[in-house]
Amino acid sequence: MKPIGILFLLTSLIAVLTSCGQDTDIDSEKPTIDLTYPETFPLNGDTLYFGSTATIKLRLQDNNQLGSTRSLSIDMHHNFDHHSHSTEVDESNLDPAKSPVNPYVFIQSYDLPPNLNSYDTEIQINLPKQNEAGLYDSGDYHFFISLTDAQGWSTQKGLSIKIVHR
């Protein structure tokens, strides 16, 4: 038996197996949140007010199809401790760090209309002035957006905003 012959055969076999069998019809791209869309609100450094309604305008896009059930998530939480995450967070204009007393927390997910590959949101968020514990703390907050497409690919944006009492 000639070893070199076997070697050649098996090497070719590996090469053949390796070079075929890739699927091209599956989606492999993440959705996008386009912050250059001129209407976008909020952007880094924008201010929201307790006791008023903010309209969230975002342009959401996907190469294939955006998700629908609870596919957009918005989360606002305090940044009094100056923690930091994700892109777009601009830490240049922060108030001094402080301890939270009664910080405002907002976590909500939104359905998007099904079968779309581009959607402009117009979400009304009503920010209350207070809860049972009293007035909410004003100051630096993070506005965190997470978006998924129908296949489960996800993208995140974190924005640094202020929420204050008028």
Binding site: S71, L72, S73, I74, H77, S109, T148
Partner: peptide, 15 residues
């Protein structure tokens, strides 16, 4: 399986 849903009640709106 990762879905297009986000969790609301426990965390940061994780996927």
């Amino acid at each position: 399986n990762p879905t297009s849903e986000h969790d609301r009640l426990y965390g940061n709106g994780n996927q």
